[in-house]
Each structure stands twice: as structure tokens, then as C-alpha cells.
Amino acid sequence: MAKCRLSLRFENPGVPVPAGDEIRGIVTVEADDDVTADALIVECRTRASGWGNTNVTSAGKDVIASGVRVSAGTSEEFPFAVRAPDGPLTFSGQLIQLDQLVRARADIAWTIDPKFEERYELARPARPVGSDRAPYTRIVRARRSWNRLRIGTLIVVGLALWLLPFPYSLLGAAVGLGLALLVGKNVIAARKLGDIAVALGATRVCAGEVVPVTIVIRPPEAVTIDRIVATIDCRESATRGSGSDRQTKSEELLSEETVLVDGGMLDPREPFTAETSVPIPVSDACSVSMGSNSITWKLTLRVAVPGWPDWTLSRELEVVPATPSEIGSAGVALPPR
């Protein structure tokens, strides 16, 4: 049993702390008996809890005092100053609650270390934080993908024919073909749309900023499109239990659509280019992946062709808490046929 109690109070209790700023406060050690602690440690922690299992990560710790001696019946105060993490911000969703905590711990030999933790609100940073924008480019060659799909389908059909004498082989072939079509949906779509190039100006963005999106399509023949849409989705997902008792739930936090092109005819003679800036909605839900709890942002591009499967491309975005700043435009060009 520990011989002392710890408590912690912030210099400005109740005032949100901007991400990356310093948190100041005082740790009080109250001793019931003479106590000597090897160290008094203050640690910034992020806790994800709620419907799913609880996960805690440490965002760094500081030893604020060493060789602490407190006499019985007295108390001593130790001021501290630690740097708050850059994220994630304090957040409460449907399944996940993200809390930022400062934990004080006295390292006492041969006893369970007494601890005390206090929550604080981590708010958007006051100063712009430089971030690596991590642009993304993808070029899809329709002919090459189509050939691959044809080979795959031929293998499945060949296998089905070979297994024909066996019971349930037709069912297996039907399932195989269904899977091939599902996997090859984009390839079938690209058969009509031709080569497609996509560029995202950034995959690591701040909430409130925009992601420049460029799509270039070079159809083999004239093709009518319904629309080209970019969708931003944010989902929280939590898992509880383990093993066979594991359950995962996910909830959509937001979903916003930006229309790049609303119908039209694509001319095979020259590549068709559509550009737009997709805004990332302002939200405290930043990208987080903490064991059983995660918040994911995804940008999905969809090219809808009437009477034909849609061509889609999804890319996960890393949304970080930061003040808005400008991002350069995304440029992409198709290589020669």
C-alpha cells in the first residue's frame, strides 16, 4: 500500500489547451508516512474509450523531480510543464470518446506506484503546423487491366469446366464468376472509359482545408457520363471483446459530396480533364488508429456511366488537427497511349 497520495491541478483549469502548447500545473504529494520516491513523473496520455475496448497511448513523459522525500503528515508541491500532444483533439462521437490526460506517478520502490490523472481539453493548435502533404497519383491503363481480368476469368471458367463432373461444381463456378466480376468491376468500367489518371494534391490534410483533385479520362470512343463525384466520408469504428466474442461497430460521422462533372459526352480525340477542390469539413474528429478504436477519413471518386458499372477509386486521408493553410494544386497528365 502506498504511503502517499498524489493530486494534480492545472494552472488554468477548464481552459482548452491548444495542441502542441505547454501545459503547466502543480502536482501535490501528501504523505501519510515518511516517503521517498525515486522520481515524480508526469505523462501526457491519450485515451480512447466508449463502446469498444479502452486503448491508451503515451505522448511522452517527463521526470519533474528525483529523490523526492516527504515527511509524514506533510505535503509538498511540484510544479510541472509538459508539452501537449499535436493530436488527436478531445472528441466525443457515437462510439468513441477521445480524452487527453495528464498523469502524475510517484516511482516508489517495492510498492504499487501512487498515480493521479486529470483530463484536459485539447483544442486546435494556435499556430499553423507544417505538414507533409503526401500527394497521391494513380494511373489506370484500361487495356492492361482488361487483359488481366480476361485471363483471370478464363482461369475460373477453365477450372469450372475441369471440375464439371463433381457435384456443386456449377455453383462453385457461379460464385467464382461473381467474385471475378466484383473484383473486376472497375476494369469493366474502365473498358468503356479508357485510361484514367487521378491525382490528389494531399492525403495528409487539416480539417477545414481542401484536397485538390484532378481526374483525366481518355476514352477509346465517345462515351456519355452521368456525373463524376468526389465523396468525403468520416467513420468511427470500435471493437469490443476478443477472440470469438469480438464485435465491431462503425458509425458514419459525416459524408459530403462534391460534384466535379454533372453529365456530358467525352470526346475520344483529346483527354478529358476535371479538376476541383474537395473541402474537408471542419471537425474535431481527426484520423486516429488506436487498437480497438479508429476514426478514418476516406475520399472516394466515382465516375458514373449510364447502363454500365461505376468506376470508383478510394483513398484514405489522414486528417490532422491544424490551422488551415494553403495547399498547392494537384496536376496529373496521362502518358501517351
Binding site: G14, P16, S49, G50, W51, G52, N53, T54, T90, F91, S92, Q97, D99, R119, Y120, E121, R240
Partner: peptide, 17 residues
């Protein structure tokens, strides 16, 4: 904005895992 659940006088949802 106060901390989550502070308006309800709680630290967190009492019925989470």
C-alpha cells in the same frame, strides 16, 4: 466547449466497455 460528458456531471459514458 466543455469536456465530453462534463455537462452531465460525468467523466465518460458510464455504460461503455
Amino acid at each position: 466547449m466543455p469536456l465530453p460528458y462534463a455537462r452531465l456531471g460525468l467523466r465518460c459514458n458510464p455504460f461503455g466497455t
